[in-house]
Design a protein around this nucleic acid. Sequence first.
DNA 1: GGCATCGTTCAATCCAGCTCAATGATCCTT
DNA 2: AAGGATCATTGAGCTGGATTGAACGATGCC
Lengths: 307, 307
Amino acid sequence: MLERLETEVFLALAEELHFGRTAERLGLTTGRVSQIVRKLERQVGAALFDRTSRSVRLTPVGRQLAEDLAPVVAAMEQALRRAVDAGKGVTGELRVAFLGEWTAPVLLRAVALFGERHPDCRVDVREAQLSNSRSSLEDGSIDVLVASYPFDGMALGPVLLAERRALAVPAGHPLAAEASVSLEVLADHPVVQYPAVTSIGFKRDRTPDRTPSGRPVPKGPSGATFSEMLSLVAMGRGVLPVGEHCRQYYPRPDLAYVPIHDAPLIERGPIWLPSNTTGRVREFIRATADVAGGGAAVQCSARGAGW
Amino acid sequence: MLERLETEVFLALAEELHFGRTAERLGLTTGRVSQIVRKLERQVGAALFDRTSRSVRLTPVGRQLAEDLAPVVAAMEQALRRAVDAGKGVTGELRVAFLGEWTAPVLLRAVALFGERHPDCRVDVREAQLSNSRSSLEDGSIDVLVASYPFDGMALGPVLLAERRALAVPAGHPLAAEASVSLEVLADHPVVQYPAVTSIGFKRDRTPDRTPSGRPVPKGPSGATFSEMLSLVAMGRGVLPVGEHCRQYYPRPDLAYVPIHDAPLIERGPIWLPSNTTGRVREFIRATADVAGGGAAVQCSARGAGW
DNA sequence: GGCATCGTTCAATCCAGCTCAATGATCCTT
DNA sequence: AAGGATCATTGAGCTGGATTGAACGATGCC
């Protein structure tokens, strides 16, 4: 391998055929250029330039090397440019997705703002499924997902949506009549469980093991999908803490949603693979922060988001 | 452009996926590897590796860059290898030529020795013409020429042949009866001139402007070829200092060759373009030196031969 | 929870990269 | 033929970045 400066000096001199201009072009002194060329020639074992104090010409060996090296350097620069573009540039295509159609509006506002700022970057919006959301982020088929925290191992952007929690109970359940309940009631009823595929952090957040006071929460049956879990609730097999949006988006006659007054909000925001923190992604996260109302504190995960 | 070390570290790490092994492989410390990768990532603007203290993986951007960069590096190494091979290696083909068939035997002995030493380097032997010998060397169609010194601007190898000089005079000329003559007689007779295309040094050597004592030498007519020049002598238009080999190779009844007893020898040896001092050429020059009898002092021109 | 492995960080060290000025070679001018 | 101008080379000396080594911190295993 050649040193960067060696190849640059060699190719520049092969073009200019003049030490002074070459030195100026590269911000060096002629002495340095001379040294570098000599070192290269020593390494190659033959003269690359045929030079006197009045003329500089390529030798056959030098000409061959210049011809061989020029496309190589061009290819290297293109490879680097491609990487820098993926890293810093905001072009190409950005794929964003939402999880649950009620999160779409805020996402679409961010998309609109991003699109204004970066007209030459296509944005593809799609809806993700809970089952494939993680793998889609990991394999790069989507760049950013708007979903609820936590999302283990992913970088988290600023909060876009926050909602209160409610407890889903069967329609005839004693708690259904309450105006609101405390998280403590979880200790008194089995809680329907999320499927094993869900991340441990998410599962703990939605269906904690213990109440705030420390009492253990009895585990109920687990469902494969959210609808199935709600059906388990309706069947009286347990209760389930959910977001209040369910009242609007899952209005079932056999279910009642009772507000929980002492639970932290469920927060949703952009989520992405830390190793996929490219320029596009950074810019989109910025757009989401701005549509969330500039004042919103940008809460990022420690890993990979600190650009 | 990337620094050599940056690309090497990056590609090595992309292969090894392990900082320790990468560092060892490149003779660095892990700290340095970490720094270099970080600098590269800063330059690219995105993470290239997804790493914890227990695992190192390529990010999508990193994988792309590695794929793009690997062939580039391979091509650069091949280009350099090609140049080094031309410079130091002794392979491919070497084209040598002689000027005057009577120089061929010593050349062929050198070719034989060279062929023994470097069986995988083809050697092409041909006869050169005085008119195209210089251009053939300059355009690379022959690498080494065995001819007489001096040869302006060319590198000179060790002397392979040395011969005394003789003065070519018409058959009936007063000097034809002498056993030998001095260079001083040149002041007394017009001297046939070499054509203008001949190098100035060569011309001075064969047909000096002044005798050793400083007397001017009258210029006779010039011929286009050596045969023509001899004919001018035969016609009585002048005399001409030549090599003694002419007696054998140009035996004309209308000419006499009288030894010159106070002229330096005419020396012949390998001649090549300084800028074409490749490994092949160097090795061939060494072979000529060896067949000339190892003791022969290697007399090289100052320019380009000092490898 | 302790241990081993491994990547990161930081301060200290040192050498290579670089500059500057003198030198020498070449060509042009008069 | 001498002088001058241009330009590549050379060598000494300096500076800044490359490199090291150790301490640190994170991670996964037993």
